[in-house]
Design a protein around this nucleic acid. Structure first.
Lengths: 122, 122
DNA sequence: TCGGATAGGGATAAACTTTTCCCCTATTGC
DNA sequence: GCAATAGGGGAAAAGTTTATCCCTATCCGA
């Protein structure tokens, strides 16, 4: 496991939420688990751009941060189900707020993001 | 300027907001600018852990994404002031929501984050 | 018996971000 | 002439995250 050399800032609420939500696929993972897609293979089909490896790593972090729980069924072939903890559920309205803002301003956001991307390749 | 090799996902609102808020100091920058700390040197005093270089880079990105504007006064010594655009202002309640969740769950968050950090160094 | 479904992990490479180091502009005041 | 002020940026190193590749194992169906 990679060991951090620089300690994170944990001064205020914004630092703290940043620390647990940080990771390319984490918000999506929480969102899909909340929608009832609980098994790893299902999540991977929902997020095809991520490799299985990264999803496992980020699921583990979410679990360590008490946002989801992992239930392993001792059957063959293996079966695993993730679900939100109570704590994780309190985060859903916050994620909804983020998504709503993005949806509301979708056209403008897409425009400014693409403009900047293209400028990079000038 | 660094040129990305992997294009970002821009499928949904969550992707879009992630794209503009991504950056270690951006949320803090927006927050302090909103509170009236508009000059670069002032922002740097408020965020002493960041170097001036990074702040400049991230301020530029915020500007490119139409969240803030930069006004340069042609005086000596130079004077620069940042302020939120109208668009940037719509983001403030969203950031407040993030901060509130973090503040509400501060104790628990700090606990799970530190537990994971220590486990890394096991 | 082979292929695919289930789940997982180590090692290493590539991508990306942030920091560090050193440099620059121009004027005012001593 | 030189320091202080208030702003900025290029290049390279360090830090961190994500991707790629190749393994483990069992069972089911063709």
């Amino acid at each position: 496991m990679y060991e951090r050399k620089v300690l994170p800032n944990l001064n205020c609420g914004l630092d703290l939420i940043g620390e647990v939500l940080y990771g390319k696929w984490k918000i999506r993972l929480l969102w899909f688990i909340n929608q009832g897609h609980q098994r790893p293979s299902e999540l991977q089909r929902k997020i095809p751009d991520a490799t299985r490896r990264v999803l496992n790593i980020q699921l583990k972090e979410l679990e360590d941060h008490d946002l989801i729980t992992k239930k392993i069924y001792p059957v063959v072939p293996p079966k695993v189900e993730y679900s939100l903890t109570e704590f994780g559920q309190t985060l859903m309205p916050v994620i909804a707020t983020l998504g709503n803002w993005g949806d509301t301003h979708e056209a403008h956001l897409r425009s400014v993001i693409l403009k900047r991307l293209n400028a990079e390749r000038e």
